[in-house]
């Protein structure tokens, strides 16, 4: 980074307030998480008696018990499966749709675009019961597909909108020259549009991943088999209202948070690049 420019530093008043705000945010984030982290290493009685104290003899036994009782291994696997399949499918479906909606001269695209935009306004809770009845009718309940399809459907509107705004910026000339060369549209899509969309694709992938990883309601309502549960659903077993096994609860909460933190550390530079170069420009 070549930052040794003529740029002057911000004045002291700004830097001071920046520190105040940043540290406030950091404390608010770190404190509950750190407290959760070390509390999960305490036995239940200690959590109840001394809620703020550090563990006297840190132990991972809460984790072992939560892992075994909650069937978290299966849940973790399912979470990865649902998230990965839904995220990747949404990406390509949205890119293809956005390509069709920006680079073809048909009047119906206004209708399709409007229909997708409307989807931004539909909340999950407004449709859950009729959707469940629909899934029962066509036999999708208690299948992985029955979870993944709604994930894709609810993710499409925002993904299509993001993709449209990016693909719009790709010059039409590219398409025209390909047309003259007699290339098939499918080839144009896979060989030109998809590679050009890499930055926006990263953004879409990350946003989708965030949405799906923490999703609770679809998995909870649409599956009854333990073998199909995802991590958030498995974790809430320990978060029952009558439950005071805080140790187990905290351990499972940490297990739920950790993969996201790892994911974020792996991808956070791509995330920034994606947002900057891609989706959200004029």
């Amino acid at each position: 980074m070549n930052d040794r420019s003529l740029l002057r530093r911000a004045p002291l008043s700004w830097r001071a307030s920046a520190y105040v705000i940043m540290i406030a945010f950091a404390v608010l984030t770190i404190f509950p998480l750190v407290w959760l982290g070390y509390s999960s290493l305490k036995p239940n009685a200690e959590i109840v008696k001394y809620p703020l104290a550090l563990p006297k003899a840190p132990s991972f036994s809460n984790y072992a018990e939560a892992w075994k009782k909650g069937g978290l291994d299966v849940a973790l696997l399912n979470s990865f499966l649902y998230t990965a399949v839904a995220t990747v499918s949404t990406l390509f479906l949205a890119l293809a749709a956005a390509f069709g909606l920006t680079k073809f001269p048909f009047a119906s695209k206004k209708f399709f675009t409007g229909a997708f935009a409307l989807g931004l306004m539909i909340t999950v809770h407004a449709v859950i019961i009729p959707l469940f009845l629909l899934e029962v009718r066509i036999g999708l309940v208690n299948t992985r597909l029955g979870v993944i399809l709604p994930y894709i459907a609810f993710d499409l509107p925002i993904s299509v909108m993001i993709a449209i705004s990016f693909i719009k910026g790709i010059p039409d000339a590219i398409l025209e020259s390909a047309e003259i060369d007699g290339a098939k549209y499918r080839q144009v899509f896979w060989l030109m549009i998809v590679p050009l969309c890499t930055p926006v694709a990263t953004t879409m992938l990350i946003l989708s991943f965030l949405r799906h990883w923490n999703e609770f309601l679809f998995v909870f309502i649409f599956t009854t088999k333990t073998a199909l549960k995802s991590l958030p659903v498995a974790i809430t077993q320990f978060a029952g209202r009558q439950n005071i096994e805080y140790g187990l609860q905290y351990a499972s909460l940490v297990i739920g948070i950790l993969p996201m933190i790892v994911f974020y550390f792996i991808f956070h530079s791509q995330l920034r690049k994606g947002f900057g170069e891609g989706a959200l420009k004029e």
Partner: peptide
């Protein structure tokens, strides 16, 4: 209706 983590 059952809370497995409940001591009860």
């Amino acid at each position: 209706q059952h809370d497995q983590a409940n001591p009860q």
